[in-house]
Write a protein that binds this DNA or RNA. Sequence first.
DNA 1: CCTGGAAACGTAACCGATAACGATTGCAGT
DNA 2: ACTGCAATCGTTATCGGTTACGTTTCCAGG
Lengths: 337, 337
Amino acid sequence: MIEANAPVTMSDVARIAGVSTATVSRVVNGHYGVSARTIAQVRTAIEQLGYESSLVASSLRRSRTNVLGLVAHSFQSYTAEVLKGVMKALSRSGFDLIIYANSDLYGSYSEGWEQRHLTRLSGTLTDGCIVVTPWGEMRSRTPIVAIDPVRGSTGPSVMADNLAGATTAVAHLLDLGHRRVGFIAGRDSLASAWSREEGYRAALAAAGVAVDPTLIGRGDFNPESAVPLARALLQRADRPSAIFAASDGMALKVLEVARELGLSVPRDLSVVGFDNIPESASTDPGLTTVDQSMYQLGYEAARMLKSLVTGEWDEPHQIVLPTNLVVRGSTAAPARD
Amino acid sequence: MIEANAPVTMSDVARIAGVSTATVSRVVNGHYGVSARTIAQVRTAIEQLGYESSLVASSLRRSRTNVLGLVAHSFQSYTAEVLKGVMKALSRSGFDLIIYANSDLYGSYSEGWEQRHLTRLSGTLTDGCIVVTPWGEMRSRTPIVAIDPVRGSTGPSVMADNLAGATTAVAHLLDLGHRRVGFIAGRDSLASAWSREEGYRAALAAAGVAVDPTLIGRGDFNPESAVPLARALLQRADRPSAIFAASDGMALKVLEVARELGLSVPRDLSVVGFDNIPESASTDPGLTTVDQSMYQLGYEAARMLKSLVTGEWDEPHQIVLPTNLVVRGSTAAPARD
DNA sequence: CCTGGAAACGTAACCGATAACGATTGCAGT
DNA sequence: ACTGCAATCGTTATCGGTTACGTTTCCAGG
C-alpha cells in the first residue's frame, strides 16, 4: 500500500517496471516502439502504484494538451447555460475543459481580466479558449472564440442575431399599442449591446415613432446598473408605458423597481428583456423576453474552437444564431388613460 | 510591438532587464534580496513585454499555487448553483478557481472519475479541491472537501440535513391524507440518498403507515433512471397517490411520465422532489420540493477548503445545513375514490 | 588595511513529463 | 557470417519557473 501523501511520478513507475521514464511515457501515450512484454510490465506498475500522469508536467512539454479553456468574469445563470452547451459539444471529443475564474474579479469589472486569464492558461495548459463577453481585444498563441464579442472584433465569435431579436421585441410592444417605449442599454463596448439598441431604433422607425433620447438609459448589463435608470424613467410624469431592457438581468430589476413604485405589471407597465435566462420564467408575472439559447451559443463556440484547434474549420469565423420572442405575462396592451 | 504568437517568458524579461531569471522571479513574487533599482528595471521590462507568469510552470515547482480546484462529473443546474456559492466565498480571498471537467464522462457514470481528475489537478496545480457528489473514497496530497459525500465517509464534507428534509417532505404528503406514497431512491453510495430514504421510512413510521417495499424504486439521481421506475409505479392497478423522488431531476421526470400516462397532477398524483433546482419553479404545476440551498453548500465548502489549505480551520469537518420545504402546485390532498 | 557579515545577484539543480536522437538488439536476406 | 533495416529502448535536452547554494559586492567596525 502507498501512503496517502505519496505523489506517484513517472519515475516511480519506471523504477518499479525496470525501464526508463521514456518507455513509460510511450506506454502512457500509446506511442510506437515498445514490446508487448514491456507494455505489460509498465501497465502492471502503473496499476500497482495508482499512477496518473500530471496534467501540469505534460502540458509544459507537449504542444497539444487536449484541454480547452473557458474564461468568464463571473458565474451567472447565463454562464451556466453556456457551460452546458460547451460540455455537450465536448462530450466524447477527447477534449477536456478547464474553467478558470479569478476570485478578485468576481462581481467587479476590471478591464483586461480576460487577457490575464488567457495568458496564464494558454501559455501551455490549453489548446484554445472560449471567452464569454470579453472586454477588449485579446491575443494568444492559441485560438480564441468569443461568445458575444466586442464591437468591431474580427476574430472567431459566436453571437445571437441581436438586431433581429431586439427589433422583434420592440415591434411586439408597438403592436400592442405602446408608443412611449423606454430602453435600457447594455455595455457599449459589446457588439450585442450595440445591435440591440439598433434594433430598438429600427423597430420604432418602422412604426413611424420618433426616438426620444430621454427614454434611453445607459446600463452596462450588470443588473444593478438598471436600478437607478429604471427609477428615473418610471418616476417621470410622462413615464413610458413599456420598457425594453437589453438583458433579462436588467429587466428583472425593472420589475422590482416597478413593484417598489407601486406600478402593476403589465397593467401600468410592460417589460421585455433579452436572453431568456431560467429566472425569467419563474417570476410573477413571467418575463416576456427574446430567447437566444445560450446553450446553443456555448455549443457552437465549443464546436468551432475544437475544429480551429485541429485545423479543420472551414465555415465562416463569425456565427450568428437566430433568436425568438417568448411572450409571457409581463407585456400587454397599455391601459387607456 | 510584439507579434501575436510570441509567448513572453521569464528569460525574455531577464534578457531585456539585464538580470538573471532568478532575479526576475524574486521581483515577480516579491521576495527579499533585490535592490530598488533592479526592481524598477525588471518592472519596466515586464511592462514593456506584457509578461504574465505561467500558471503551469510555476505550479510545477511551487508548493502553494493559490488556486483551488473543483471537479464535478457533469454540469447540471445543481452544479451551477454550487459554483455561484463557491465563487462568492472565494471573492477577494486571493484564491483563484479552476474547474476541471472531463468530456468523456459527460452524462455517463464511470467509477473513479473523481480520483482521476483529482490526481491530475492536485499533483501540483491546485492547493486543494472541492468534489461534488463523489463516487468513492479519494486520496490526495492536498485537502479535499466533498459536497454530498459518499456514505460512511469521514473526510471533510458539506451536506444538507437530508434526513430532516425528507421526513418533512413525506410528512407533508401524509398530512394531506396520502397513505400510499411511492419513493424513488437516489444512488445508494451517497450519504444523501441513504438519509433521504431513512427520512421516508421515518415519516411513514411516525404516521403509523407500514412501508410497502414494492413502492420503492431504485434510481441513481440521474433523471433518466427515474423514467422506467415511475412508469412501473404508475401503471399498477394499486398505484400510489403520491411519489417522493430523492431529487428534483428525477421528480420532474415523474411529472413527465404522469402526463404521458394521462394522469393529472396534483389531482391524480402528488409529487415531491428534493433539491429545489431553478427548473422546479417553472414547471406547470410547480414542483413541491425540499430546498437545500446548493448555493450555501458551495459557499460553505469553499470556506472550509480555504481554511484547510491555510491550516486555520478549527470547526468540525462535517457541516450539515438546514433544509426547508417549498410547497408548490404539485401536491394536494388525494382525490376520494 | 583587514575582516566579518549582510545584501544582492547569478548558477545550476530541480519539478515531471516529452521528444529528438543515439545506441542497441533482433531478424531477414544474401 | 555479414549487411541492412526496423524495432526497441535509454540518454539527454528541454519546457518555464523556483529555489538552494555559492559568489561577489559593499560597507561598517576593529
